[in-house]
């Protein structure tokens, strides 16, 4: 009882702070200096139609590298926490009811299409909403569909780890190329910028975002595979 009362008291304090923030909030009438710079210079400097992509991949590219590293660490720790000191049950010991006809047929039809949609989303990240993170999540959803159809399916962890580390190394290598060929780390102008709004534009952004998409997709798939390979307790 006293525990609940203390929690409510704390929440009342936080709510008072939030009320203060909410009632004194005045939306800006104009873009602030940073946002104005990005809005005015993206088309000429970066050549990407989607300004959010330009910020994520190029202007704040180093932050994205850090983010992908955090995601890699959390995927690695999930694997470490779940795999330490456990006897792997073979497929014969686990019994599951087979998936229905509808799910089995539907997944063979849909899984390749979902993967294709994921690739489309991250290849077009500089033109349309979407990009590496969304595309990677869609690819992982395709993997999830395969796992739902056959829970005993064993994804090759070696393959996932290879895709993950290769795309990570290539990402950093392209970033380093930017230092030598263009203005700095992760500069996208190592390739021609092209015309705004076409697929082969925005320099190295489609390349970098595709690598991020593969890396994120591999990391999410590895988290999903590890969690689904746990045993019932």
């Amino acid at each position: 009882m006293i525990r609940k009362f203390a929690a409510l008291l704390l929440l009342a304090g936080i709510a008072a702070i939030f009320m203060g923030l909410l009632f004194t909030y005045e939306p800006d009438p104009e873009l602030n200096t940073t946002a104005r710079y990005y809005a005015e210079r993206t088309a000429a400097d970066i050549g990407a139609a989607n300004i959010v992509t330009a910020i994520v991949v190029t202007y704040r590219g180093l932050d994205t590298l850090g983010e992908v590293t955090v995601l890699f660490l959390s995927a690695a720790i999930v694997g470490l926490v779940l795999a330490s000191g456990r006897r792997k049950k073979t497929a014969k010991e686990r019994t599951v009811t087979p998936a229905g006809e509808l799910l089995a047929t539907g997944s063979t039809l849909l899984a390749p299409l979902i993967m294709l949609l994921g690739v489309y989303v991250f290849v077009n990240g500089h033109l349309t909403p979407g990009g590496g993170f969304q595309g990677g999540a869609i690819i992982a959803s395709g993997m999830l569909l395969l796992l739902l159809t056959d829970p005993l399916k064993h994804f090759s962890h070696t393959l996932i780890a290879t895709v993950e580390s290769l795309s990570g190394i290539l990402y950093v290598a392209i970033g380093l190329l930017g230092i030598f060929l263009a203005g700095g780390f992760l500069d996208n102008r190592i390739l021609p910028i092209g015309t705004l709004g076409t697929l082969f534009s925005a320099g190295a952004i489609p390349l970098i975002y595709s690598l991020i998409g593969l890396k994120v997709g591999a990391e999410f798939s590895s988290i999903l595979a590890h969690l689904s390979e746990t045993e019932e307790l």
Binding site: P129, A137, L227
Partner: peptide, 28 residues
């Protein structure tokens, strides 16, 4: 914010829900 909407729909409501159900199925 269409970029954020896509991310939230794919990750927040899709993958996270399934992660919870994987664990919920193991701790019956």
């Amino acid at each position: 914010a269409p970029d954020v909407a896509m991310t939230e729909a794919a990750i927040g409501s899709g993958l996270t829900t399934f992660l919870f159900f994987f664990i919920l199925g193991r701790v019956r």
